[in-house]
């Protein structure tokens, strides 16, 4: 019988595949009809396919495995525990990430605030310039009529009356304002 099968399979190496696929209902119509025709004509081939089928059916003798009564519950609990364990690091990472973002935003806010304050604080005050040259501006018309620069410098000398006079005048004006 086995020899017959080997003879059958020698010219066509796929014969065993065809027979098994035939048993499994996996052949296309044309192939199935061809195998059926060969089976009808070849008793040895019928014997061989019968052997294949019998051997396959013997697998049915193996006992089926059944899980214990608590298997479902223990499995679900195990999965829940493991999933929770695995979720912790990710939660921690997410928390770290969230806090990192918050800190970065806070840093950015304070940085911008400090930069703005510095810009405002360091910017030259136009009023300060006016105040510093208040005495000159006040007497500009009179000073413009003096062509001698050296004389103008002497007018500004505190030992004469430049600074003292200007301070008195300035303070007096400020108070009156």
């Amino acid at each position: 019988m086995a020899e017959s099968f080997n003879k059958m399979s020698s010219p066509e190496p796929t014969s065993s595949e065809q027979l098994v696929a035939f048993l499994d209902g996996e052949l296309e119509e044309q192939e199935r009809l061809a195998v059926e025709a060969r089976l009808a004509a070849d008793a040895a081939l019928r014997e061989e396919i019968s052997r294949l089928e019998q051997a396959w059916d013997l697998l049915d003798t193996l006992p089926e495995t059944e899980a214990g009564q608590n298997f479902t519950q223990t499995t679900v609990e195990m999965v829940a525990v493991r999933a929770a364990e695995e979720a912790d690091p990710s939660s921690a990472r997410a928390m770290v990430s969230r806090w990192g973002k918050r800190l970065a935003l806070a840093g950015l806010f304070f940085g911008l605030t400090a930069a703005g304050y510095a810009l405002v604080a360091l910017r030259p005050d136009p009023n300060e310039l006016l105040l510093r040259h208040y005495r000159i501006i006040k007497h500009l018309d009179a000073l413009e009529s003096i062509p001698d620069v050296e004389f103008l410098r002497k007018l500004n000398d505190p030992e004469l009356f430049g600074e003292e006079e200007s301070l008195v005048e300035f303070n007096g004006d400020a108070q009156s304002d």
């Binding site: 027979l19 048993l23 499994d24």
Partner: peptide, 12 residues
């Protein structure tokens, strides 16, 4: 197909 054919011939 080949795998199952070899397996079933081996089992037989």
């Amino acid at each position: 197909k080949s795998l199952l054919a070899r397996a079933r011939v081996a089992l037989r």
